[in-house]
Each structure stands twice: as C-alpha cells, then as structure tokens.
Amino acid sequence: MSAASHDAHHAHEEHEDHGEAHGSLKDYVIGFVLAVILTAIPFWLVMGNVLPNAQMTAVAVMGLAVIQVLVHMIYFLHMNSRSEGGWTLLALMFTLILVIITLSGSLWVMHNLNTHMMPTTAHDMQQMP
C-alpha cells in the first residue's frame, strides 16, 4: 500500500469517528467526575469508620474499586466491543480469566497450606534469627 493511499485511508477513518477515536471532552469529564466520586467514597468509608464492621467496609471498598476500574476502562481507555474489531475486548477477557485464576488459585492454595501449618505465636517469631 502506498503512503498516499494509506494517508487517504487514515483521513477517511478520522472523519468517520470524529470525536471518538480519542474520546470527547464530555467523555473525559464524565469519567473524571465518576472517578472522583468512586475514589472519595471508599476513602470516606475507611477514614470515617462509617460502616459498622470491617468486613462490610472491605466488601464495599472492593466493590467500588471494581466499578471504578470499569469507569476508567470505558471513559479513559475508550474500551468498547467494537474497537479493533473486538480484539481488544477479547484480549481483555482472556487476561481477566488468567487474573482470576492467578488470584483465586494463589489464595486458595496458600490458605490451604496455612491451615496445615503448626501455629506460630508472635513471641516465637521474635526469637527467630
């Protein structure tokens, strides 16, 4: 393909998704406002001791983190099912599956090992070299 035809092709594409290829101002502002809210709430929950127990706070913080990751993906990284003919989404899904296997597998195996360990007290640890 010659450089000229490539340029023409490129210009044509830019025309097609004008204002979308790099996200519009509106996208960024919406994303930013959502991100600020989703950041402020977990900090407020933890620093202000808002919820009755730590377990609930932990679940809320992680839930909000997942939502914020999605917000960043959509508004800042401009993820959608169409980009690159769906290949970016496919790569993301594959990675997410690997991430889930890695995280849950590590926790599961190590938890299993820990429950089979002899109990160690803090005093024992301090005596260790």
Binding site: D17, S83, E84, G85
Partner: peptide, 17 residues
Amino acid sequence: YLTKEHHPENGTLLGFW
C-alpha cells in the same frame, strides 16, 4: 465491523494493548 471503527488499522494500538 464497520459501524464505527475505533482505531486506525495499523496494528500498533492492538499490539500495545
């Protein structure tokens, strides 16, 4: 595929992704 192509089709952005 053609409703709205997101990136230029040069492969770099997909590779970087």
